[in-house]
């Protein structure tokens, strides 16, 4: 017997999924389904858009209007879907490379426009689909197949990048902190305007193995030990925050939303 959530929101005949054992992506995908259920959204009015990469296969398993596009372009396709039909709840699923490398331009401009799209970044710090090359979120000194002597790039902070570009909702969570993830994704979907949730995933197959991160359990434990909620961190002394990563809600503000603003222009001519 499958869980009713799975039966309701997934395309059962499309399983098993393509992800490796221990991959964190399934946790995030399930969290999106729970958030949709919690919000009581009409499945026919939900559209999930993705680009290319491991995480971008998620929409194929999810029982909504689903669009698997070209590498990096999910937000651009999603912008067209949303502007043409603002009644649709449009959610974008993108990997770290998809969203912040090849699709980085679309990320900053979607945030700038404050168009009502919800972006869930499945950040596993690596290009998994192509076999473990370093991505814009691979930490400095870590290894990838294309950084055999250690990565000399400085990584992006995607949640911060979105804020800098004008996102009105931005949060970070991890595949370990599931109850928090459910809440943040739900809040992001509910948010009117551009919202981003950076969900830190794990890639034991490439990132983990290449960088000697141990077992899947070790990688999960690392997430547990190294991420601190931004509200908790406010009260912690400096030495306890040393080397830790922040998670939680970084910004949640209301500003004019793009499709609303466009509707006003149309309204002007209807008078």
């Amino acid at each position: 017997m499958n869980h009713p959530l799975v039966e309701n929101y997934f395309r059962m005949d499309k399983f098993p999924h393509i992800w490796c054992p221990g991959c964190g992506h399934g946790i995030i995908m399930a969290s999106i389904a729970r958030a949709i259920e919690k919000l009581g959204l009409d499945k026919d009015k939900v559209c999930i858009v993705s680009g290319i990469g491991c995480s971008s296969r998620a929409p194929g398993y999810m029982d909504f209007n689903t669009l698997h596009t070209t590498h990096g372009r999910a937000l651009a396709f999603a912008t067209g879907v949303k502007l043409a039909n603002p009644d649709l709840e449009v959610i974008v699923i993108a990997g770290d490379g998809d969203l912040s490398a090849i699709g980085g331009n679309h990320l900053i401009h979607s945030a700038r426009r404050n168009i009502n799209l919800t972006t869930i970044c499945f950040n596993n710090n690596i290009y998994g689909m192509t076999g473990g090359q370093y991505s814009p979120t691979t930490p400095t000194n870590e290894k990838g197949t294309t950084a055999p002597y250690g990565n000399i790039d400085k990584p992006f902070d995607i949640a911060k990048l979105a804020i800098g570009a004008g996102a009105t909702y931005s949060a970070r969570t991890t595949a370990y902190h599931v109850p928090q993830m459910d809440k943040l994704i739900e809040a992001a979907i509910k948010h009117k305007g551009f919202s981003l949730v950076e969900a830190i995933s794990i890639c034991p197959t490439y990132y983990g193995r290449k960088n000697k991160k141990g077992s899947v359990v070790d990688m999960m434990t690392w997430l547990k030990d190294n991420f601190v909620d931004v509200k908790v961190a406010e009260k912690l002394p400096q030495e306890k925050k040393e080397g830790k990563f922040l998670m939680g809600e970084f910004i949640n503000i209301i500003e004019p939303e793009y499709t609303d603003q466009y509707a006003k222009i149309i309204e002007h001519f209807n008078k």
């Binding site: 858009v49 209007n65 669009l67 596009t69 070209t70 372009r73 651009a76 396709f77 999603a78 912008t79 067209g80 879907v81 949303k82 502007l83 043409a84 039909n85 649709l88 331009n105 679309h106 900053i108 401009h109 466009y262 222009i265 149309i266 002007h268 001519f269 209807n270």
Partner: peptide
């Protein structure tokens, strides 16, 4: 376009220009 209830958007680059059009076409536009 807005005068007839249609939509126009200037995208951030040429690639986004065609991508948004394809997305919109899927909604029936």
């Amino acid at each position: 376009l807005p005068k007839i209830g249609g939509k126009f958007i200037q995208m951030e680059d040429e690639i986004a220009g065609i991508a948004a059009a394809i997305g919109a076409s899927l909604t029936g536009a």
